[in-house]
Amino acid sequence: MVQIYNDYKEHADFLTVYVREAHPTDEWQMKSNVKDDVCYAQPKNLAQRVAIANDFIKRFRYPIAFGIDDIDNAAESAYSAWPERLYIIDESGRIAYRGGMGPFHYNPDEARAWLASRYGTVKHDPPAPAPALNSSDRTGAAGKGV
């Protein structure tokens, strides 16, 4: 989503809404969360939500505007947004795009397509191919993705 934000921030506003944790330690924790050191219990109050949200922002230097759902999960309920979901609201305040339920139907490419239909496609250069690993590359530099 950050790439989409960077591509279209001159045309559209973006807002991230932090909702209840999907895989907290005291519920359905995933192995990947342990591996990535993203281990939090489900917040029981707003102060805990604020702390986790700030950890996220700092860790990823997340550039998109951020709001935290109330502890009664009002935004989540209004938008049926748990665990993750995308919407686009048009200038008249109506739903212009409704994404599918995450994680299985969470599809940022659909939001990008909506923005592209209005403001044009933003193309990116394909990633450079990885250098071939041959004898001259065996210096420790290969595989670092630089």
Binding site: L15, V17, Y18, V38, Y40, E84, E91, L115
Partner: peptide, 21 residues
């Protein structure tokens, strides 16, 4: 505090719901 609808009106608003974990 602020309201989601405070952010709408001038341009389309892309709303991203999610959590850290």
């Amino acid at each position: 505090h602020f309201h989601i609808r405070e952010r709408t009106g001038n341009r389309p608003l892309v709303v991203i719901f999610g959590s850290y974990t």
